[in-house]
């Protein structure tokens, strides 16, 4: 019974996602504001920022729902989800949730929240998706091994002048630059 009328009234929530896309901030302005957020985190809580820790706990939560007995046998998971422990009951999960909400708000306000796949011009969407998935596996595996990712190690530890974090930071950029030439088709 849907009759197509040329004058479609666009509902409010759809309009939200049809805003004109605005430019990103200047890099240095973004950097100063990011630095202030990072400082606020240290200043108020003593902790820096993080992202992979939250993912880690979400994964542990899923595993704990599916196979709680198994979780209780894996040392790495016990500390997060063993016995009665709720892996989501941790500050980093709140930060992770906040990141998603904050990113969403900024994306909607500035007209950048839309379904799309960003990719290099010479690959298909499917190739991009496969490599995004693969990249995610590598990145968080490495992040667990190094005890933090670009946020928890490189950014937070970089600002608090942790020696180990500076090493991790150089390793991340070193690894990416070393491989960049060989996978240039993905992006160029």
């Amino acid at each position: 019974m849907t009759t197509a009328t040329p004058e479609v009234k666009v509902p409010f929530y759809k309009k939200l996602f049809m805003r004109e896309s605005k430019n990103y901030w200047n890099s240095y302005v973004g950097g100063v504001l990011l630095g202030m957020v990072l400082f606020a985190s240290f200043f108020l809580t003593g902790n820096g920022l993080g992202a992979s820790g939250g993912l880690s706990r979400i994964a542990a939560f899923i595993e704990d729902m599916i196979a709680p007995d198994h979780v209780n046998q894996v040392p790495y998971l016990i500390s997060m989800a063993g016995g009665q422990l709720n892996p989501l009951d941790n500050w980093i999960v709140l930060v992770t949730l906040g990141v998603i909400i904050g990113g969403f708000i900024s994306g909607v306000i500035n007209g950048r929240a839309k379904f799309e796949t960003n990719k290099g011009p010479n690959i298909s969407n499917r190739t991009r998706w496969i490599f995004a998935f693969l990249g995610g596996i590598f990145f968080t595996y490495g992040a667990r091994l190094a005890r933090g990712c670009t946020s928890g190690q490189a950014l937070s530890g970089g600002a608090s002048l942790s020696a180990g974090s500076w090493v991790v930071m150089f390793a991340i950029f070193g690894g990416a630059y070393a491989l960049a030439y060989f996978v240039r088709k993905l992006w160029n």
């Binding site: 595996y141 490495g142 991340i172 992006w187």
Partner: peptide, 23 residues
Amino acid sequence: GIVGGLIMGVGFILGGFCPGTSL
């Protein structure tokens, strides 16, 4: 830290994100 960092670098260039940016 070094090996984890290098693996993260691989993930970065293949996947185009890091965990925070992917969120």
